[in-house]
């Protein structure tokens, strides 16, 4: 038995570097050798600095995104280095966090969200995941909602412990309002007030509309009851 355990340990030790380096083989043929070396170095440094090893995979993916767009090697390296730095900052601001949260938080930092907001978000939801809240925050900022306002609104929702479905519903409706001509800041604030005022739905299925049959024709503007019927 002891021999089997020892064999497994030796096998695992032998395979570990190969597994860790497997993600870098994805770069083969996609970027030049210099770019590849730089990305490997950035990923190794980030892992040594304490980032979860899974996030090295995200760094490689970002490089591949740049390569698919035909970006210059320098631009690819800059993007990957910047992402690694933001991931480090995000991890520091969030405290204990899953890789998916660090990934989402790094994107939030890129659009201008402050590290303090990440810390406050974690405080508001110490046990729950904040990845969806962060992704929706990024989307709101991208749609033109000022970053301070968007941060404040998402924090207000997080403090009421709403479910992921509410964040998705908020994003969807704000996008629809903006598409209909509403100011982004007004749309986001109004929709968030709507959620807060109604006690906050906690599941996605509460975001269903009841199709009232009376809505078939809606409120008509035409006058009815013109001349009376003949006797």
């Amino acid at each position: 038995m002891r021999r089997h355990v020892l064999s497994l340990a030796v096998l695992a030790a032998a395979l570990a570097p190969a597994a860790a380096g497997a993600q870098f083989t994805r770069l083969d043929g996609r970027v030049d050798e210099g770019t590849r070396s730089a990305i490997v170095a950035i990923a190794d440094s980030a892992t040594l600095a304490g980032l979860p090893a899974e996030l090295a995979d995200k760094l490689v993916s970002r490089a591949l995104l740049g390569a698919s767009r035909g970006a210059a090697p320098g631009a690819i390296i800059d993007a990957v280095r910047s992402l690694a730095q933001r991931m480090g900052s995000a991890q520091q601001a969030l405290g204990p966090a899953r890789p998916v949260e660090i990934d989402a938080a790094a994107e939030a930092l890129r659009v201008g969200v402050q590290p303090l907001t990440l810390s406050q978000l974690r405080s508001a939801q110490p046990r729950g995941a904040v990845d969806v809240a962060l992704v929706v925050l990024v989307d709101l900022v991208q749609r033109g909602v000022p970053v301070d306002t968007a941060s404040r609104l998402i924090l207000a929702l997080a403090e009421t412990r709403v479910g992921d479905g509410v964040y998705h519903a908020l994003r969807e409706h704000v996008a629809r309002d903006i598409g209909a001509g509403a100011l982004p800041v007004v749309a986001a604030a109004t929709r968030t007030r709507g959620v807060l005022a109604t006690g906050a739905a906690t599941t996605a299925d509460q975001a269903e509309r009841v199709a009232a049959p009376g809505d078939i024709t809606g409120v008509s503007t035409r006058p009815r009851g013109g001349p009376p019927p003949p006797p």
Partner: peptide, 26 residues
């Protein structure tokens, strides 16, 4: 009947429906 009308709502307002009564997420 036939009609032509304009509908005015307060300026600058978003459609202020709470998500709890709206359509499912796309």
């Amino acid at each position: 009947y036939g009609l032509l009308a304009v509908r005015m709502t307060p300026a600058g307002r978003s459609d202020p429906l709470a998500p709890t009564l709206l359509a499912p997420v796309s």
